[in-house]
Design a protein around this nucleic acid. Structure first.
Length: 285
DNA sequence: GGTGAGCGC
């Protein structure tokens, strides 16, 4: 559309931080490996004021990119080049996102979704890259690692819903619930804990409080193989992840057994003549 | 202690 985030420019610091703002030291994003921890002191158990000192580092000048609109799926090729990003704090704007990924040299645009009436951020956004491979690289390297200036991890995924091609693996998924997680356990850590033993692992997610970014102490691990799910429930129960023994149980399925997420729209067109017995929303896309 | 998840405002 029209957004033109000051590329390489300076993000106007959100000047709403009350008093503790000057104690924040400026920090930059990870240079090489994103999972270098950047601990930041803030936090007394309530909503943290936005850090005033997000310093956009000198980024490579916007080349030819950045004037495209953050469209959905790629125009010509049809390939998905955008990532969905969730768990955004209100102060994490387009500049913040752009500056993080600018170092890849492959980011096209970033967009934070805001409420139409209140103009408040909805907590998620989209980042478009020059190619699907570029997006995939970012997805692999950034997902689940700490975000700059925040005590939470990147939550990234393919921007796929409604765009046809979703990164659907193959077939159903089998999920377990993992409780008693230590506070420092990340998605990545959780996944790595299982990966060595259960090759069919599809992913792991630590549930966080979106307002604080902190772990709620439990999460989920998904497998492609049901037998591995079953095994994991007994074999991994009581095993340590970080500093604490995990407690594992069955997960109530968020998704249908097919592994397909619920869709917004129904597929009326799929109802063939005489088959109205089947409700449209029961048909997996 | 507990069962995520949010897709273009």
């Amino acid at each position: 559309m029209m957004q033109q985030p000051a590329a390489g420019g300076v993000a106007p610091p959100p000047s709403m931080a009350p008093d503790q703002s000057q104690t924040h030291q400026y920090q930059q994003q990870p240079q090489s490996q994103p999972w270098m921890m950047m601990s930041q002191q803030q936090q007394g158990g309530q909503p943290v004021p936005p850090p005033t000192g997000w310093t956009p580092q000198p980024v490579p000048p916007p080349t030819q990119m950045q004037q495209y609109s953050a469209g959905s799926a790629a125009a010509g090729s049809g390939e998905i080049r955008s990532l969905w990003i969730g768990d955004l704090q209100p102060w994490m704007d387009e500049n913040y996102l752009i500056n993080i990924f600018a170092q890849t040299g492959e980011v096209v645009s970033a967009k934070v979704i805001r409420n139409k009436q209140t103009a408040l951020p909805e907590g998620y956004g989209f980042i478009e890259f020059v190619s699907r491979v570029a997006a995939e690289r970012v997805l692999q390297s950034y997902n689940g690692v700490p975000m700059p200036n925040a005590e939470q991890n990147f939550r990234l995924n393919w921007a796929s819903l409604g765009s046809g091609e979703k990164r659907q693996e193959e077939g159903p998924e089998y999920t377990i619930f993992v409780g008693d997680l230590a506070a420092d356990v990340s998605d990545y850590m959780l996944q790595e804990t299982f990966k060595a033993v259960y090759p069919s692992i599809r992913g792991a997610k630590v549930v966080t409080d979106r307002t604080t970014g902190r772990s709620k102490g439990y999460g989920f691990v998904r497998f492609g193989d049901e037998s591995e799910q079953i095994r994991a429930m007994t074999e991994m129960n009581g095993m340590y992840c970080s500093t604490r023994a995990m407690r594992i149980g069955p997960a109530s399925n968020k998704k249908p057994v097919t592994g397909q997420p619920y869709q917004k729209g129904h597929r009326e067109a799929l109802i063939l003549g005489g088959l109205e017995l089947i409700s449209a929303e029961m048909i997996p896309l």
